Amino acid sequence: MEGARGEGTRWSGPGGLRVAAVRLAGAHRVWASFAGVPPGVQAAFLVTDGGAFVGRGYYTSVEELAEVVDLAALKPG
């Protein structure tokens, strides 16, 4: 997830669902801290639907992400 603006770092799903791989710095670090992401974690998946967090919003592994998102329904972009 380093260089979080590279190709393949964003996906979309049904409706307004969006998943992005983000570096946890600045505002992302603050929001992730509120979501319970430990301070040592440097990157996470951010999940939104219509601009609102899905669940806690930030997920640190594909396994955690799969608990709230149907990964098969995601498309690049």
Rank of each mutant, 00 (worst) to 15 (best):
M1A: 15
E2T: 15
E2P: 14
G3N: 12
A4K: 11
R5E: 15
R5Y: 14
G6Y: 11
E7W: 11
T9V: 04
T9W: 09
T9A: 11
T9M: 13
T9C: 12
R10W: 07
W11V: 07
W11R: 09
W11A: 15
W11E: 11
W11Q: 10
G13M: 09
P14G: 09
G15Y: 10
G15D: 14
G15L: 09
G16P: 01
L17T: 08
R18H: 09
V19K: 02
A20R: 13
A21S: 08
A21L: 11
A21E: 05
V22S: 11
V22P: 12
L24S: 01
L24T: 00
A25M: 04
A25W: 07
G26W: 00
G26L: 01
G26R: 02
R29Q: 00
R29P: 00
R29I: 00
V30C: 08
W31I: 02
W31V: 08
W31D: 14
A32F: 03
A32Q: 02
S33I: 01
F34P: 00
F34Q: 07
A35P: 03
V37H: 00
V37T: 01
P38M: 06
G40S: 10
G40E: 15
V41W: 08
Q42C: 08
A43K: 01
A44G: 07
A44F: 04
A44K: 05
A44I: 08
F45W: 13
F45V: 10
F45T: 09
V47C: 05
D49K: 05
D49F: 02
D49T: 02
D49H: 10
G50L: 05
G50I: 07
G50T: 07
G51F: 06
G51I: 03
G51H: 06
A52Y: 13
A52N: 12
A52S: 14
F53D: 15
F53Q: 15
V54M: 05
R56W: 01
R56G: 02
R56N: 02
Y58M: 06
Y58E: 05
Y58L: 08
Y59A: 04
Y59D: 02
T60A: 12
T60S: 12
S61E: 06
V62I: 10
V62W: 09
E63M: 05
L65W: 04
A66E: 08
A66Q: 08
A66H: 05
V68I: 03
V68T: 01
V69Y: 09
D70C: 06
L71Y: 10
L74D: 04
L74S: 03
L74F: 09
L74P: 09
P76Y: 07
P76V: 03
P76H: 09
G77C: 07
G77T: 05
